[in-house]
Amino acid sequence: MPIDVARALAAAPRTGEISWGVKDVLLYHLGIGAGRPATDPRELRYTLESRLHVLPSFATVAGGGPPGVIGALSLPGVDVDLARVLHGGQSLTVHRPLPAEGTATTTDRITAVHDRGDAAVLVMRTEAADADGPLWTGDARIHVRGEGGWGGDRGPSARREAPAREPDRIVERAVREDQALLYRLCGDFNPLHADPAFAARAGFERPILHGLCTYGMTLKAVVDTLLGGDVNRVRGCTTRFAGIVHPGETLRIRMWRGHGEVRVAVGAVERGDAPVLAGTTVEHT
């Protein structure tokens, strides 16, 4: 089996140093759809350096290096075909507001390998800290099709259903036709999101949007709609990637207020609200 479970779990953490600046943050915000309308003061918080607030999900691309999915494939014990890999879910905990420019030490390691029968699920944890202490902790859940069935632990269920009542707010966000091409400049050059031939080999009719782009768009919608535009209120965001998004589609984002959290479900409008993000929770102050 290309995934050597024992070796992956026993491997020493991989450490490195990352740096980012204002231009990286601005590019990320544009990549998740900020700046529409371009002169809206609420959007200028994301697109104008003199007013810049950093959306916490920027942590998933900070440094511009290989993100969770591609980064995990270079860890010891993991040797799989990228065409059989999908990002299954993401959680992020921010320990304090992210600076618009900085340098941090990151530590990556595989913390779990689960056997889902028809797939293996890797959990890769990334921790980042700077001179002042911890900045963020992120867990990427990575599905590798065809690598399960060795009799291992299935792992905990990541499912958390949306509340059985009408949402408190519903907003729609259009995904630009070229959004995946722009977002990939933040560091995720997986050809699944740009190359039609590679997408077909992976089983898709055309390139799909990065799951983390949908994740960032959703977090921004929650901040702008229910958190008064205050990015510093976010403490964490967890989601399960339940389906694909095609560039050019429209996201319908349903939100339910809770105690210290917002529950969220996201669907693709043009495909009858087909789920794309599920079990999503934004924790906040």
Rank of each mutant, 00 (worst) to 15 (best):
G258F: 11
I170T: 14
E270V: 11
E172L: 04
G243P: 11
I142H: 03
V282C: 01
D168H: 05
P191C: 06
F58L: 02
I170E: 12
S91A: 14
P76D: 07
G63D: 07
I170F: 07
E17Y: 01
D118T: 12
V80T: 01
P99I: 04
T60L: 14
V22F: 01
M124E: 14
A59P: 05
A10L: 15
V61N: 05
W256D: 06
A158V: 09
V245S: 03
V222K: 02
P99F: 10
D178L: 08
R235K: 14
D132L: 09
F198N: 09
E249H: 12
L75T: 07
L219R: 00
G77C: 05
P156H: 09
R14I: 11
T111C: 04
G267K: 13
W150S: 08
H193Y: 08
R116V: 00
I70M: 11
P134G: 10
R257A: 12
V25R: 06
R263E: 05
A158I: 03
L26N: 04
D118A: 11
S91F: 01
E177T: 09
A128T: 00
R252E: 10
L227Y: 06
V231N: 03
H284I: 05
F198M: 06
P13I: 11
A8I: 02
A242P: 03
R14V: 15
N190T: 06
L192M: 14
A174I: 09
A140N: 08
I110W: 14
D79R: 15
L135P: 01
H246Y: 15
G138I: 14
S50F: 04
F241K: 12
T126D: 00
G279A: 02
D130H: 02
P167K: 11
M124N: 14
V266L: 01
V121E: 04
L92F: 02
R36E: 15
I244N: 13
V54F: 13
V22C: 02
A62P: 03
H114C: 10
S157Q: 00
A128S: 12
L44E: 08
G148K: 14
F58Q: 03
Q179I: 10
A112V: 02
V121C: 01
W136T: 13
L98C: 02
V69L: 14
A194Y: 12
A265I: 05
